[in-house]
Structures are given as structure tokens and as C-alpha cells.
Amino acid sequence: MNRSLAAFSLVFLNIPLSAWSGPYPERPIKMIVPFAAGASSDMLARTVADGLGSRLGQPVVVENRAGAGGNIGADAVAKAAPDGYTLGIGSIGTHATNSLIYASMPYDTVKDFAPVTLVASVSLVLVVHPSVSAKDVGELIAYLKKQPGKVSYASGGVGASQHLAGELFKYLAKVDMVHVPYKGSAGSVPDLISGRVPIMFADLPLVLPYIQNGALRALAVGDRERSPVLPAVPTVAESGLPDYQANAWYGMFTPAGTPGDIVARLHRETADILKQPEVRKRLIAQGANPDGMPPDAFRTFQRKEIDRWRTVVQAAKIKTD
């Protein structure tokens, strides 16, 4: 009798938690984006959410919860029930560099999340308002050195990818610019195209229409290779700063403790969505590079990003309360 009970207990303990609550999913799923609507993270989230909704048979509702460099939305994901009904889109800020920048964090960047997949990396493009005379990176560096500390550049917030890209540029080019953070990169666009803040390392999907209509001038892209969307625009590395590389990335996370079979299914479905020819074509045309890497590889990638940007954060003395 005791042996039978022990055997039953072992079987019981090895059944995934999700198996006892019925087939997943049984109700709508929430996907939290920690930035404002209109940003690259929002665009990618809605693309994935639409595809997941069709594949899972339940609506996936995108909820924008911006603030504190993305920490408010990311914290909501970290503290949600680990049942697969709350997903989050994370960024280089929320899941890598905010932990290096903020004096205190409401969550642990690594331990409080189960990684699902890297959704996409997004090219950052160095754009200037037409009022800036520089036509290339070399001319921009000369322009900035003539007026140190007098020219401003925009970003989506302290620690955001656009901020880090700007600080890396300052560090390598030995120039001084004034950082102007916004609540999400989309919020910077009106001031950028008006010339109030004339420079930005911007997410390519966000500013591509303004480059195409001449409202902004693209000087270089931050990736190691040129963008297929802007093949005539050189990289920063080939424009005189060979050690330069910066881009944005956005991945999907669930709260730590989410059953492995649910994480595996979310990864499988999301990766399949990102492989669809029409989805890939649309995202690439907007300046995003779809990915879909497995959870373990995404965790390794995340840890490497934390280590990679630590030097820049320390050199630039980026800190915030």
C-alpha cells in the first residue's frame, strides 16, 4: 500500500501544473508592452499578438503600460501569476541595462522572468534634422566638436537603446551632446521632425517615413551591416568609428515559474509566426529583423547584453533614481 502511494505521489509531482487546469489557453491572454503605443515594441507586439490569437484560439490583448524606462510594465509582468495568461515584451532597457542604471529595481532582470524568444532586433539609424549641416558622420563629429554641450539628442528614455547608442557614439567619437529623454521613443518624433531636438539614434521603423519624405536625414545605421531598407546609408562603423555597434531588440517573456510546456508552446507558435513569408517581408520592410530563437539561447543572449553594455554605462556614468 505504501509503495503504491509513493508511486502515485511521484507520478503526481511530475505532471506539469498546466495539465491540472485544463488545456491552455482557456481564456484571453494579456500581452504587456512597457512603452507607449506607436513604438517599435508596440508594432512587434501587435504583429505577434494577432498571430498568436489565431493560433491559440483565444484573443491576445496588447496593453501599453509605459513609465520609468519600461520598469512599470515589466514589473507588472514579473508579478503576474505564472500561468501563461500574462506575457510581456521586453527590451534592452527593461531586461538588460536598467539593472545597471537604476538605483533600485522593482524586479530582478533575470530571475523574475522566463524567457520565451527574441522577437526581433531593430536597426537604429542616426538621423538629423535638415537644419543640421552635417551630411555624414565625419561632418557631424566636426559639427559637435565646434559646439560641445550645446546640441541635444533624443531617446526613448534613460537607459533605452537610443540613449545607449547615443552615449556609445559620444564615447567613441569624443564629442559632447545633451541627452533629452522622452517617455518612449515615439514621443520624441514631434520634437525631432520640428528640429527642437535635432539628433537621434532612432528605431528605423519609427522614422523611416520621415527619412523617405525628407523630414529627417539619415547619416548612418548602428548595425554592423547596412540595412536592406536603406542600402545607400553606411554604417557608423564604416563611417570612421570601427568599434561602433548598437541596435534595439525586443523579446517575449513570461513570469518566472510559468510551466515549461506553456513556454515551449508560446515559443513554437511565435517562432512559426515570425517565419511566415508575409510577416518577415512586412517586418524587414519596416527595419526589423525577425528572430525566434529558443528560450535557452535567448537567456544566454540576454546575459551577454547585460555584460556588453556595462562598460558603456559605467564610462558614461549613466545613473537615475
Results as ranks from 00 to 15, higher is better:
Met105Asp: 09
Gly138Leu: 03
Lys319Gln: 14
Gln162Lys: 07
Glu167Cys: 04
Ser133Thr: 14
Val110Met: 08
Asn213Val: 11
Tyr24Pro: 10
Thr117Ser: 13
Ala66Phe: 04
Pro295Thr: 03
Val151Lys: 03
Ala39Thr: 15
Ile141Tyr: 08
Val180Tyr: 05
Ala160Leu: 05
Ala297Gly: 11
Pro106Met: 12
Leu10Arg: 15
Tyr102Gln: 14
Val279His: 07
Gly53Gln: 00
Val263Gly: 04
Val122Pro: 09
Gln314Ala: 13
Gly73Cys: 11
Arg299Ile: 01
Gln302His: 06
Thr47Gln: 08
Gly57Leu: 11
Lys317His: 14
Gly166Ser: 09
Ser54Gln: 11
Ser121Arg: 14
Leu13Val: 12
Ala285Arg: 09
Ile193His: 08
Pro290Gly: 12
Gly53Leu: 00
Val175Glu: 01
Ala202Phe: 03
Arg46Glu: 15
Ser194Thr: 14
Leu172Val: 09
Lys304Glu: 11
Leu144Ser: 01
Ile199Pro: 01
Ile193Leu: 10
Asn213Pro: 08
His95Arg: 01
Tyr102Arg: 14
Ala173Leu: 09
Leu100Val: 04
Lys174Met: 10
Ile89Cys: 06
Pro295His: 01
Lys145Val: 11
Val119Leu: 10
Met43Trp: 00
Lys275Asp: 14
Pro259Asp: 09
Ser104Lys: 15
Thr311Met: 12
Asn247Glu: 07
Glu238Tyr: 12
Asp42Arg: 00
Ile29Val: 15
Arg3Cys: 11
